[in-house]
Design a protein around this nucleic acid. Sequence first.
DNA 1: AATGAATGAGAGTTCATTCAT
DNA 2: GATGAATGAACTCTCATTCAT
Lengths: 216, 216, 216, 216
Amino acid sequence: MRCSLPVVARRPKKSTQRPTRVEKTQDTYDRLLAAAESVVGQEGYAAASISKIAAKTGVAQGTFYNYFETRQDLFDVLLPHVGQKMLDYISSAIDHHSAGSAREEARFQAFCDYLSDNSGFYRILYEAEVHAPEAHKIHIDRLVAGFRRSLDRSVERGEIKGYSKEELEAVIYMFLGARAYVAMRYIRGGGSKRKAGRDQAISAYVKLVSGGLFSS
Amino acid sequence: MRCSLPVVARRPKKSTQRPTRVEKTQDTYDRLLAAAESVVGQEGYAAASISKIAAKTGVAQGTFYNYFETRQDLFDVLLPHVGQKMLDYISSAIDHHSAGSAREEARFQAFCDYLSDNSGFYRILYEAEVHAPEAHKIHIDRLVAGFRRSLDRSVERGEIKGYSKEELEAVIYMFLGARAYVAMRYIRGGGSKRKAGRDQAISAYVKLVSGGLFSS
Amino acid sequence: MRCSLPVVARRPKKSTQRPTRVEKTQDTYDRLLAAAESVVGQEGYAAASISKIAAKTGVAQGTFYNYFETRQDLFDVLLPHVGQKMLDYISSAIDHHSAGSAREEARFQAFCDYLSDNSGFYRILYEAEVHAPEAHKIHIDRLVAGFRRSLDRSVERGEIKGYSKEELEAVIYMFLGARAYVAMRYIRGGGSKRKAGRDQAISAYVKLVSGGLFSS
Amino acid sequence: MRCSLPVVARRPKKSTQRPTRVEKTQDTYDRLLAAAESVVGQEGYAAASISKIAAKTGVAQGTFYNYFETRQDLFDVLLPHVGQKMLDYISSAIDHHSAGSAREEARFQAFCDYLSDNSGFYRILYEAEVHAPEAHKIHIDRLVAGFRRSLDRSVERGEIKGYSKEELEAVIYMFLGARAYVAMRYIRGGGSKRKAGRDQAISAYVKLVSGGLFSS
DNA sequence: AATGAATGAGAGTTCATTCAT
DNA sequence: GATGAATGAACTCTCATTCAT
């Protein structure tokens, strides 16, 4: 019966009417990841049992194993997945013509904004060093690489002076750590401190960066 | 039988002859903590089962519960315990007459030294945010308090200018985070990078602190 | 489209051009059995999952159930299938004019030869008593029937004397058991013992058969 | 209070009044093995789940793991355990002054008797080659060793002639196999055939042994 | 205070089978 | 007839905690 229907008109490129098998498969995969993001973000890796994730996804436990070989496989994929979403957000949020400390301020601000709206991300990131070290390394390496590209340009422009190549690498780790602890304190702590604390943190961060790292 | 012992000799100040009941109790408690420090430091909280800790201590599993109500109780006590040892070390390692950025450099250096010799400490600290959040908060608060006292003195001396009280708190968290990530990278990473990396990190840290935080 | 093919050419006796639907069905069935033989022979019944057999056959899991109602159904068919191949081999390997103990020796020799080249057969047979008792019974009954025909002829010829009908049945089982254990020891054991052990076993078997069973 | 009781009188060497902890532990171990013997004997290794064995023993599932590290560990211990019981029975059942084929007949008869009363033993033995190969090897080696000692004595006495050392080893395996298959047929088969079949098997076995193996 | 066997809930994982496509 | 995602029951094993001794 379906054969007699005008196929061209009924199935436009992005039909939402009848999901194909492949689309459903992709959808299930996405929903498993989303469920994992939610559960791990709220309760941590240790409490993220297969049964919880499957239930939240709305599938049977066995279905999980059609998509991931082991629970660890999911964990190893989770942080790179959500980490990329965060990087995409930051990338889209900053003005690409800004430079120097202004650019760095914008990045930090975007980072804080993202965490405010995705409070689970911090936990997924933080616990990953314990529960998914491979994923953690991948994520950190990606962050470092992006950071380094940015700093290298600043060095070329003369915005940064007096730091050796190796010292700059150390500086990158320090700033990543600074970000993480500020997040831990002001974002994760939750409550009323958030808003005010966030602004104080940003202004302190800017002073540190502009006064200490970038030569005037 | 015990009654026949010479009473006077039973509790000399530093008797090594016959530990009293109280001493034995204290000793068992200390050994349980030491075993926990060793196991958690090497294998993490999740793998630190009661049976492992009890075996390492040389007591039965049930004995553990004469000293701690639950496994979590032990975890909640562990980081403050080992954290204090670290603070004592740093305190003893720095010159108490130093001030400003020189003092801060000495603290950072001592921190790095301590981690080199106590690689397990980092893991106990790091995973505590996941597995013993109460203990983590206690430890961080203690660090922050000590840091703040130091910075307050620098402000009084005019070594630091232009930072509000709240901004200084943010700065403290940033430096704690910077330390932690540098440790993760250069200390925990292990291998040949350690020594060289450590020195680069210290010099970068000093530049950041002296150029950025402390007015010249 | 298929309709336009020249009808006559469509089913030549041994067409290799276009397998008919029936041929393809038979072929898939055969390949499923062959895959099962390979997997069960190498890894045993317990490890012979549907997914493994289907993968080895090159079909989807679901396809399996178009040919067998359950996994057990396959197992119940497997040993009779491969067992017949063995019997055909032995039958083709012995001289049909031989008789008495010479014939029995030839059968044992052929049995050993077959196992050497089809090491998986032994496992399919052996584990069948556990995992496919029905099939095992069918196979054993077939062996016994063939054996009995042979012994009956020897009785008629006066080569065997002094054994009642029921005792001969018992003797058959004993010889089957003897074969199986010798196989277990010398064939399955593998290694250097094989060749020498096999020859020793054959000569011992012959002595037993000729001296004990067949009157001289 | 118990202290004031006359200890000597109240606790004779083998008191059955108050089992000590050690006795209870041994008892639990024994009951686990007995439960395993029963379950494996009736339903086979594959169906012998921990939960079944624990339930039959009357303990929690976890208790099982205080006595065996894994399910396989139990299996590896089961056959040697029940095998020894069988050997003890046979040893106690035969006349130790008998020799030659008469002794071998007695052994076979005792074997059959044992199987009649312990029908599960055959399954534990048979499936062991599949599910507990280590245990199977241990048991078979033990059987072979005992058999060989017996045959060696017969050789010394001149009851056996014309078999090389290696051929005798093959003969041992053949007799073990013969026994096993006869057991499979007449014992396991169950029903009315048992009694009659058993006697036929014994007489056939005797003829084979006396006429074939032992020179007259 | 010390012991260690017993507990039992809950974990991750497997896989024969079904069924909509 | 072929597909392969979904199912869910069943499995082995772990371990914090209890309690009689």
